[in-house]
Amino acid sequence: MPSPFTSLRSRLARAGDFGRRKSSALRGLPPLHDLLELTARVGYGARGFVYLSVGLLTLLGAVDFAGDAVSARGALAWLADTPFGRLWMMAVGIGLCAFVMWRVLQSVFDADHQGTSLEGLSQRMAQAFSGSSYAILAFTAFHFMARKPETTKAADVEASRERAQTVMSLPLGDEILMAAGAALFTLGLVTIRRAWHEDFTEYLACSAKTSRRVAPLARAGYVARGLAYLPLAILIILAGWNSRSSQVSSFGSALDAVERQPGGAWVLAAAALGFMAFGVFSFIEARFRRIRPPRDLNPL
C-alpha cells in the first residue's frame, strides 16, 4: 500500500500533467522533477553570490580599501544601497528561497539519501539548520527590497546585545547564553573538521580531474566558515559567564576584533579568501552537483 507521501507526490505530478494538457501557457513548463532540479541549482548559485560578496567586502576591509568585515546581512545591506539595489534584493531573495526549498527536500525528505542512521540524521539536522539560517537571510533580502536598510554595524551590535539581554533575563538565562555560545563554538569546530574529512566532490557530476581541482575550494571555504564562528562564540560565552550582555557582538564586529590583533589583518584576509572560495565552489555545485529530488515525500 503506497504511503500518503507517495500519493501526495503522485497527485502533484498528475496535476502538473493535467495543467500542461489543458493550458498552452503551462505546456512549456518542465516536469516536477526538472523544476526541483532547477530550483536547487538556482539556490546554490544564490548562496555562491552571497558568500562571494561577503568575501570580497571583507577582503577590501582587511586591506583598508573600504569598510570593515561584514556578515551576510551586511553584504545584503551594501548591495541594497547600490544602483538597482531592489532588483538585486529580489533576485537574491528568490534564489535563497529556492535554496531553502532544496534544504527542506534534503533534510526532511532525504533527497541526498543520507538515511536514518546516526550519521545520516546528523547530516540532515545540519541541513535543516542551514535552511533556517538561509530562510532568515531571504527574509532580510525581501525586507531590504521593500525598505532600504538604515542599520549600521553599531545598530547590529546593539540588536545582538538586546537579544542577549532578553535571554539573560530568563531563568538560568546566563547558562542558556553560555550554552548557545558553546553550541556555536562546536558548530565552528565541526565545520572545520568537515573541511578535512568530507569528500565534497562526492555529489559532483564532473571528471575526476575537475573534482581534484575544485575540492580545495570547498575545504578552504569550510575552514574559513568554521573559524569565523569562533570569535563570536567566545564573546557570547564570556557574556553569559560574566552576566554582561555588553560583551556580545555581531558577526562582523567579532571579525573586526580579530583584525585589531597582531597579524589580524592577514588572518581576516585569509578568511575573506576562504569565503570567496566557498562562493566559487557553490557556483560549481550549481553547475555540476547531482540533484536527485526524492521519489516520494516520505521523511523516512
Rank of each mutant, 00 (worst) to 15 (best):
R163H: 11
L184K: 09
L187D: 01
G181D: 08
P171W: 09
I176V: 15
A180S: 10
L189H: 00
E162R: 12
E162V: 14
G188D: 01
M168C: 10
I176A: 14
A179S: 13
S160Q: 12
A180Q: 09
L172P: 00
S160H: 08
M168R: 12
A182G: 05
F185G: 08
E175H: 07
A183W: 06
I176T: 15
G173C: 06
A179Q: 09
P171E: 07
T186Q: 03
A179N: 05
G173V: 04
E162F: 02
E162W: 00
L187V: 01
A179T: 14
P171F: 01
A179K: 11
S169E: 12
A180N: 03
L187C: 01
T166S: 13
A164M: 06
L184A: 07
A164T: 13
L170W: 12
T166W: 11
T166N: 10
G173S: 08
Q165D: 14
T186S: 08
M168Q: 14
S169T: 12
R161W: 08
A183E: 06
G181R: 09
L184E: 06
L187N: 11
A180G: 07
E175F: 11
V167P: 10
V167M: 11
D174S: 15
V190P: 00
G173E: 08
I176W: 14
L172Q: 04
I176K: 14
M168S: 04
R163P: 00
Q165R: 15
G188I: 03
L172E: 00
D174W: 08
L184C: 05
L187R: 04
E175Q: 14
L172S: 01
L187G: 07
L189I: 05
S160E: 11
S169K: 15
V167G: 12
R163D: 05
A179L: 15
D174V: 03
P171I: 05
A164G: 14
E162Y: 00
A183Y: 02
M168I: 09
F185A: 15
R163L: 09
A164W: 12
G181A: 05
A164Y: 07
R161P: 07
L184N: 07
S160D: 09
L187Y: 03
A183P: 03
E162P: 00
L170M: 13
G181F: 08
L177H: 13
E175W: 13
T166L: 08
M168P: 12
L177G: 04
L184V: 10
D174F: 01
D174G: 10
E162D: 03
P171D: 04
A183H: 01
F185R: 09
A183D: 02
M178K: 15
M178E: 07
A179W: 13
L184T: 08
G188H: 00
L189N: 01
P171L: 00
S160T: 13
F185S: 09
I176L: 15
T166R: 15
A183R: 03
A180R: 07
D174T: 14
E175I: 10
A164E: 12
S169C: 05
T186A: 14
L189R: 02
L177P: 12
A183G: 08
A182N: 04
V190R: 02
I176C: 08
Q165W: 07
E175T: 09
G173K: 08
E162M: 01
E162N: 05
L184D: 02
G181C: 06
S160P: 03
L172K: 13
V190G: 00
Q165M: 00
R161G: 04
E175P: 00
A164Q: 11
L184R: 13
